[in-house]
Structure formats: C-alpha cells, structure tokens
Design a binder for these strands. Structure first.
Lengths: 234, 234
DNA sequence: CATTGACGTGACAAATATATGACAGTTTCG
DNA sequence: CGAAACTGTCATATATTTGTCACGTCAATG
C-alpha cells in the first residue's frame, strides 16, 4: 500500500475522473479540486503528497498556483506535476522554471502517468518520516515502530499506532471523524464513524499516565484534537 | 555467493539498467537511486557495501555526495567508485582527492566494471565486521563465528546466525519480513514470507534464557525488531 | 431540571496475524 | 554411503486486532 494522497486539480470533471481511476488502480488515494482557490485550501487541509495540476484553470492559472505554493515555506516541498495540452511545449520550460517537478502532456497513458508520479514521489524522499515525532514526553519512533512516554515503552495496536502517527504530525488541530477515517484508515473503506471513538478511546488508554490522558481532547460537535495539555484546569 | 549490496546512483535509467544487469550477472545485489538525496537515504536505509556514483547528478553533484559520505563517520568507510564520462580526466584527480576509492570512465566493459569493483571491495577488507557485535549479555564474534550469552556458547544454524548478525548491527529498528528476506537471504531468492517467522522462532529458541527470549520483539502488522528488553513491565 | 443529542465504555464475535510442531527434501561431513 | 543437521513449507494452535453494539454519562439548552 502506497498510502500516498494525490491532489488532482483540473476544471474538467471527465479529466479528473480519468486521473482518479488511473491513480486508484495504482493504489493512491485521490482528492480533487476544480479551481485554484479550492486547491489551495485542500493543500492546507488535507496535506496531499503530490499535486497533479492542470495548466488551464478557470480562476488563477495553474502556473500561478504552482508559483504560490512553491513560494510558501509550508508547501514549498510539495511536489507538483503540471498537466499541459499537446503542443504547448513552451509551457514545459515555464512550468519547470516555476518549480513544477515534472510535467505531462495530454493525452497520456495511465502507465506513463503512474510512472512519472512514482518517480517524482521517490525523488521527493521517503514519505515515512525518519525523524522521531514528539509531543512533550511522548516520542514516536517511526523507524523502530515504537512509542515511548518518559522512555517507557507503550503498547498499542497497529490502527492506534497509525492514528497516533497522524496526530503527532498534525497537532493542535481539530479533525472530524470523517477526516480521521480518510487519513488514518484510507479513503475508500466503509467504516462507521463511531468506530473512530472506539479507537480514540484505545489510544487514550494506551497513552494514559496515572489513569488520565493529557494528549487527546474531544471537540464537541466536531471531533478530536491532539495537543499536549500542559497545565491542569482549575 | 558474494552477497554484497551495491548502490547504483545515476540519473539516467538506461545506465542504471546496464549496470544492474552486469552486476547481477556477477551475483551482486543491486539497489538504485537517481539523485543524491535518494542515494543518501538509501545508504542509511540499506547499508550497501559499495557505491557506484555518477559524476553528474540532477541535484547535488556526485562529488558533493561523495564528500558528505566520506565526512560522516558512519559512512566514511563505505567504498565509492565514481563514474565519469570519457575525456573528463581532471575529474579523476578531483574524485580521488575527495575520497573516491576508484573511478571508471564511461563507456566501460562489464568485465572491467566487475574487476575494479572486486578490487575495491577486496581492498576495503571483509564486509564481515571484525569486532564482536553485542547486545546486553549477548555477544556475537564474527571471527570465531560464535555466539555466547553470559559467556555460555549458544548453538544455531547458519541462517539463524546470519539473521542474528543482521539484527545485531541493526538494533532498535523494525523490519518487515520482506526486508529481512532481502537483507538476510539475499535479494533475488523466492522464499515464502512465513519462512521468516520460522527462522525467527528458531533464533528465539536459541537465544532463550529460562524459556523466554528477551531480544526479538514482534511488531504486529509489520514484522520484527531486535532490541534488548531491559526491564519487566508491572 | 428535564430533555436531547453527543460522547465514553465494556463486551463480543469475526477477521487477521503470529507461533509452533511436524515433515520431507537437501546438504554436509565423517 | 549413512547419519546428522539444515531448510523451506504446511497445517494447526494461539493470540491480537477490529468494527459494532448497547448502554451509561455528560454537557448544553430552554
């Protein structure tokens, strides 16, 4: 399972569909946007691993979006593959100058698409973080696949481990159950929303110190948030 | 079986393919990277025995990568053979100055490649570590090909010995069954993944003290990890 | 303060993953 | 040539994980 999330940005629905089919066949998770504004908020929101960006967009041109993303420090490492119509060769130059990591000329074969995408993702470095993720006394070592609190090893199931990994790289931010299902379980599984509650509980239990968990907060009406609770409330 | 792992670093896929074919014919295991960043993480990740490094790379130049590897204590003994295009003779000087152990001018014959590679590997000394590998009371003496716990000799089969050798030099890190097959069995053998379980069991049995093994942990959903279990949980 | 919707919890059966013992084909070595 | 040791694979135990429920609790609201 690659488990990489690809953001498809194109204003034509049929094109998006084609891309999605090809990518899901290759086991990527897809999310879609049809204009630059929507795309931008999805980048912030969903943190995809790569963007497939059409040259022509209704509002801001694709190239402009690429430029903005590459300029912003938070998103500058996000790989971008530009899609461009056949014959517009000069776009290639401009696109690569702007910071696109690759470009693909329409029409293209699914195989070519996936091959280039793989190459770009590989070049971008491992999506599995090598550095330990931390939150206060909590440390998750991705290499050793191990979680410790105060150096004490903590046991949990694989799903809890993935959930915690996600939370640790997205702290201080509230997620709905649906978002968590998407990110931690993977987009296309059908699971009850309440299942998230149960896994949250299991994770809380695992992370509990003195019977109380200081890491996961319930956001009523919304979902959950991970953040280190520093001081006790009075 | 040489069982040596060679890391090929070149941005041109055809060149990599040619090298791989030549090397696999000579019974080396090959892994590939197409840029410096990828190469660096593969060095850490896969611990190859030698690097074939192209002079020209898209991101950091090959020479720069070589310099970094030679500077870092962990990787400074890793032999490097630089690949350089014909005629660029001054590269030879610079390359050898940087710490490359040999250089080969493109185009070259497969025979020449393998011959030089062998020479460099021989010069680099045995890939078998000379120093004993230890983990707590467990000591593996590579020279004497012997394992002891508390000075007590421990018997095990050749596969278990290789597995333990690998684990001892990669402690605290979780490996999938596939990775273990790659590293311990050698890349291109077809063996069932479950076979790993069986050898893990045999190794555990051999390392067991009082019927319990304190060295190998099962990482559910992933594989196994070697690490000395220090204290009991309450 | 009763109501209502949202969240927490323990239990469970089904699904998965891992451990184990046995076995047959090979290799090793005396 | 045999005996002993080693390997890879199974089939069969065991153990753990997972998604759902049903029911208890809690917080906000009028």
């Amino acid at each position: 399972m690659t488990n990489n999330t690809i953001l498809i940005v194109d204003d034509e629905a049929p094109v998006r569909d084609m891309l999605r089919v090809a990518l899901e066949m290759a086991d990527y998770r897809c999310i879609e946007a049809e204009n630059a504004q929507e795309a931008h908020s999805m980048v912030i929101d969903e943190q995809p691993d790569l963007i497939l960006l059409d040259w022509m967009l209704p509002d801001v041109s694709g190239i402009e979006l690429a430029r903005r993303l590459k300029r912003d420090e938070l998103t500058s490492t996000l790989p971008i593959i530009m899609l461009t119509a056949k014959g517009e060769e000069d776009h290639k130059i401009k696109g690569l100058e702007t910071g696109a990591d690759d470009y693909i000329t329409k029409p293209f074969s699914p195989r070519e698409l996936v091959a280039r995408l793989k190459a770009v993702l590989r070049r971008a470095g491992p999506s599995v973080p090598e550095e330990p993720l931390t939150a206060g006394e909590l440390v998750l070592d991705p290499i050793g696949h191990r979680v410790t609190i105060h150096g004490q090893s903590v046991e949990m199931g694989p799903t809890e481990f993935r959930l915690l990994t996600f939370f640790l790289s997205h702290q201080e931010r509230a997620y709905t159950r649906t978002q968590l299902l998407d990110h931690v379980w993977g987009g296309n599984v059908y699971v009850e929303e309440r299942t998230v509650d149960v896994h949250i509980r299991r994770l809380r239990k695992a992370l509990a110190v003195d019977g109380h968990d200081r890491f996961i907060q319930t956001v009523r009406g919304t979902g959950y948030r991970f953040s280190v609770q520093t001081a006790e409330r009075v």
